[in-house]
Write a protein that binds this DNA or RNA. Structure first.
Lengths: 245, 245
DNA sequence: CGAACTCTTGACTAGTGTCAAATTTTGTGG
DNA sequence: CCACAAAATTTGACACTAGTCAAGAGTTCG
């Protein structure tokens, strides 16, 4: 759904987001063989135990990572927004340790592992950008561990709402602290270690306190300072880099 | 406390654990300038917000990663055992997003970032090994998220005990499902999103059920199958590679 | 050898989970 | 584009896991 020039541009930007690319790197990225793919919501991209053959860049829509316990409980262990690389781990790990699923209809660019490996090994800037992307993802996992392990329900929900806002704004996809959050309350619960019922109560409470506004699944942060304070939110862990300089 | 030959050998092994090294790689690792350092327990190695200048390989003792909330609550978001690289994230991220602390007296090998960057860029096998190490760490974060988010206290404790056993045995540091776990019950609580008091109750319960034996902080898994079943423990997420072949 | 941590235990509390049912929203086939 | 079924949201009543507080016993370490 994007023309080739647009796809190339976004691919370059996805790497350039993390580190300055030299002309060689940009040229190499522009010559990378890629496939565009559209996938409906609620579909598997990778299943646990599978041996995936490609990485992807998410252009549009949301993707999440989930793990299941033996008795069928689900944890959503990660969320990807447009501009994120998905499945860099496939580069060097054989077997997937979790499921990757679409939250909404998505548009992704597929890159084969071999192409990406060649690119990374011939081009230090790309290797560096991929490292940074992977390390930031790990940093987000750590913050989520703090969130789920040591914050109460209100703080947790507030923190996730802040994080999503910050991540969307960092890539220019949300303005005015307002965005469409296409997750059900059950999914929010699975991402925060809570039940859907409790998420509902907490969202209502946050609304009543004037911290957020909701219409359907559209979230507007009404009082950023207060929400941020409640959530104990600080962007440091997102390592938002401005590689423009 | 280790002689130079020993240090070199362990360093080579730390990389070789993840991928086969060619002779060039081995030679390069053997020529890496390294410093050995001994640090007492309960010391900071890195503080949040710092700009660290080196990476380390943990030779002896335990290290943990912690994050604090504004109101002083702590989450332990990671644990490193001998043979693990510590702070590969420093390679490409400027500012640390968490604290790194010694749990016990440790012996580490310090490597400067510049030396490691040069090594990685000149030697694909090393770059690959470091990627794998980083990706496995991320995989452990995800499993911990599932553990804290969706398992109850008994399952959580059991899971951590299984994980530590598996990680120690994978590098040959524990036999017979028995090991010294140098964590206080408060630290266990912080790693599992529980309180020290509750950890105590759960440990006693697991002991009473005949799943584990305890003497001071020494843990012996008395019934691996049962403990593993209770914990819903599966080693897949550890991506234990046998790079020997 | 004493002070400061840890561990252990009991009594009580609070935050979330569970269950269930009404209401609203979403998605889909005709 | 409507109609309807399925899914998601909302709410209340109640249950239960894990937290809090407190105090005594054991352990560690300077």
């Amino acid at each position: 759904v994007f023309d080739d020039a647009e796809v190339r541009g976004r691919l370059v930007h996805a790497f350039a987001r993390f580190t300055k690319l030299d002309d060689d790197a940009i040229a190499a990225v522009r010559h990378l063989p890629v496939t565009q793919r559209e996938i409906a919501g609620s579909n598997y991209i990778v299943r646990e135990g599978q041996l995936p053959q490609r990485c992807a860049l998410l252009l549009e829509g949301f993707i999440y990572r989930q793990k299941l316990t033996a008795n069928g409980q689900r944890a959503i262990v990660g969320l990807q927004v447009p501009g994120d690389f998905v499945d860099l781990q496939n580069l060097f790990l054989d077997e997937s340790d979790h499921d990757v699923m679409t939250l909404t209809r998505v548009i992704i660019i597929d890159i084969t592992l071999t192409d990406l490996r060649v690119l990374a090994s011939t081009c230090p800037a790309i290797n560096r950008a991929m490292w940074i992307a992977g390390l930031i993802e790990a940093s987000i996992f750590r913050e989520w561990l703090l969130n789920v392990g040591r914050r109460d329900a209100h703080e947790r929900v507030a923190h996730l709402l802040c994080e999503i806002s910050a991540r969307l704004e960092a890539t220019g996809q949300a303005r005015e602290l307002s965005y469409k959050l296409p997750m059900t309350q059950e999914q929010l619960g699975d991402a925060l270690g809570l039940t859907a019922v409790h998420i509902n109560r907490v969202l209502k409470a946050l609304e009543k306190q004037g911290l957020i506004l909701r219409q359907k699944r559209h979230i507007a942060i009404a009082d950023w300072q207060q929400l941020r304070r409640l959530a104990d939110f600080n962007t440091r862990y997102l390592h938002i880099v401005d590689a423009a300089e």
